[in-house]
């Protein structure tokens, strides 16, 4: 093997991200994004939600295509199970956000990732949503994410990737910190 250090390639364009960071520092208005989803009830507890457009860099933007997601509840809730539960979608969002962050931070630190797998568990006492016990909250008791990471790095460097990813994660922030939520009915 040669002793020339090979640049890591995790498929993340860090130059573009760093370029965006620099550009948006100069033009903070362009950093204001709006994310959107639309949903429609399909019957029972089944809802279909679609994502396509969003606002950013000062103008309307689009994904390369429309993405569609089904949420429902499992048969043990007497539902038809046409999709994952909405609470599982929250876990999907967290996994996607943290793992993307790990890849980006690893690229920036020139660490080659070979595999990144996560299992997420979130206990919930459904006495809350069923209104059985008012002292039990509706949401998760807690969330535990466990990563198995194979990378060309030390244990400490991997721990630092995971820590930095949490620090910069939007979904981690959304879940760990309060957000004002406004739900209105159009007239």
């Amino acid at each position: 093997m040669s002793d020339v250090q090979v640049a890591a390639n995790n498929g993340v364009n860090v130059e573009a991200l760093l370029g965006a960071r620099e550009a948006l520092t100069e033009a903070p208005e362009a950093a204001k994004f709006v994310w959107r989803a639309e949903s429609e009830w399909k019957g029972g507890t089944h809802t279909q939600s679609n994502v396509e457009g969003f606002f950013g860099l000062g103008e309307e933007q689009n994904h390369v295509r429309e993405f569609s997601y089904d949420t429902d509840h499992p048969e043990i809730f007497a539902s038809e199970d046409k999709g994952s539960t909405p609470v599982e979608f929250v876990l999907v969002g967290l996994a996607g956000c943290l793992t993307a962050g790990i890849a980006a931070v690893a690229q920036n630190r020139n660490i080659q990732l070979n595999s990144v797998k996560a299992t997420i568990e979130a206990p919930m006492d459904i006495q809350g949503i069923l209104g059985i016990d008012g002292d039990v909250r509706n949401g998760f008791d807690s969330i535990t994410v466990k990563y198995d990471i194979d990378a060309d790095a030390t244990e400490e460097e991997i721990a630092a990737l995971v820590a930095q990813s949490q620090k910069r994660s939007a979904v981690f922030d959304i879940i760990t910190n309060p957000t004002n939520v406004n739900v209105e009915v159009n007239k």
Binding site: E156, A159, A163, Q164
Partner: peptide, 19 residues
């Protein structure tokens, strides 16, 4: 209301101290 990120905040500080 406090952030639920305390564990990571502590982990970051420990990692940095060890570095």
């Amino acid at each position: 209301q406090f952030s639920g990120s305390l564990r990571n905040i502590a982990a970051l500080a420990d990692l940095k101290m060890n570095r």
